Amino acid sequence: MTPDPAASEPAPACLACDLTAGRAPLPGGVLLRAGSWVVEHCVGPLGLGTLVVKPARHVLHVADLDTAEAAELGPLLRRVSAAVTAVLAPEQVYVCLWSHAGGVPGHLHFVVQPVDRSTRVRHGAFGPRLQAAMAEAGHMPEAAEVERVCGRLRGVLGG
């Protein structure tokens, strides 16, 4: 599918674009720019060490990724998952697509989330229900904690 030229321009109210461009606070900063992709710590309540892998350009649908973006995606998700595993030693790393903002498609991003037993037990859930429970609980990691873990992740990710 040919990318929509308008899709390369940031959407008027796109948090993902604002975070990458430095127009919104991003604890930990950009961890990695790899080809057409950007890796950052999640700014939502999905736990310490949860990363976001997103295209550098504003893209709403996987079908709209260009050839280079599509080719880079699998190896990058593996690399980021391996870094999360090395730094946080979770029992599992969830990788899932999120792309809705306010109920409409938003900037495509993959969530790379370390999950351990204590988190599952605390929320009484796993998988998508765990993510929903964490979102409902609304616990945000402290910025200083995010900065520390991002420093460790950056060291493993290289760049």
Rank of each mutant, 00 (worst) to 15 (best):
T2S: 13
D4R: 09
P5W: 01
A6W: 08
A6K: 05
A7W: 09
P10L: 01
L15T: 03
L15H: 00
A16Y: 07
L26K: 01
L26M: 00
G28Q: 02
G35M: 11
S36T: 10
S36N: 09
W37T: 02
W37S: 03
V43E: 04
P45K: 02
G47S: 01
V53S: 00
R57H: 08
H58V: 08
V59I: 10
V59Q: 06
A63N: 11
A63M: 14
D64G: 07
A71G: 05
E72C: 01
R78Y: 10
R78S: 12
R79G: 02
V80L: 10
A82S: 13
P90C: 07
P90N: 05
E91P: 10
E91S: 13
Y94M: 10
V95C: 14
V95A: 11
V95E: 08
S99T: 13
G103M: 03
P105T: 05
H109C: 00
F110P: 06
V111D: 08
V111P: 07
V115G: 00
V115Y: 00
S118E: 14
R120W: 03
R120V: 07
R120T: 14
H123P: 06
G124V: 07
F126A: 14
G127C: 06
R129L: 15
A132K: 05
A132D: 10
A133T: 10
A135I: 06
E136P: 03
E136C: 03
H139V: 01
H139C: 00
M140C: 01
G155F: 03
